[in-house]
């Protein structure tokens, strides 16, 4: 199947004007599959870490949102053990006008602003609410252990 114009344009732009702190490189043999890295935002427990993700554009993209998953282990209330992300724009608030670029920026923003009230990883969210300092400390340790290149 020929790659839709939309995907070609998005990929070109990601290459030509990369977003600071984010990389997204399509696989040569499957241009709908991207290797992604996101740098942890400064002032967050993920600062200094570089997180690997995979991103896949389904057939019906952009009518349906891309599928994104963390590959690097991360301690975050909205990201579960399998790396799945709880983010409204990836679900009910997806709009076909959104792009890979905007989604990755939203994910980076989520690292800077965890939301334990809408959790995906319940144990993490619980801890986040009960003892935020300890949770942040764990997130920092995990960042140091798993996300340093």
């Amino acid at each position: 199947m020929a790659l839709p114009k939309r995907i070609i344009k998005e990929t070109e732009r990601l290459m030509a004007e990369p977003v600071p702190g984010i990389t997204a490189v399509p696989h040569e043999e499957n241009l709908r599959y991207f290797d992604v890295t996101v740098d942890g935002p400064s002032q967050s427990p993920y600062e200094g870490g570089t997180f690997k993700l995979e991103l896949f554009l389904p057939d019906d993209y952009p009518m349906t949102p891309p599928k994104v998953r963390f590959l690097t282990k991360i301690y975050h209330p909205n990201i579960d053990r399998l790396g799945r992300i709880c983010l409204d724009v990836l679900k009910s608030n997806w709009s076909p006008a959104l792009q890979i670029r905007t989604i990755l920026l939203s994910i980076q923003a989520l690292l800077g602003a965890p939301n334990p009230d809408d959790p995906l990883a319940n144990d993490v969210a619980q801890r986040w609410k009960e003892d935020q300092n300890a949770a942040i400390q764990t997130a920092r340790e995990w960042t140091a252990q798993y996300a340093k290149v």
Partner: peptide, 8 residues
């Protein structure tokens, strides 16, 4: 005009 969904 360029459509933001299909880039046509």
């Amino acid at each position: 005009f360029m459509c933001d969904i299909c880039c046509d």
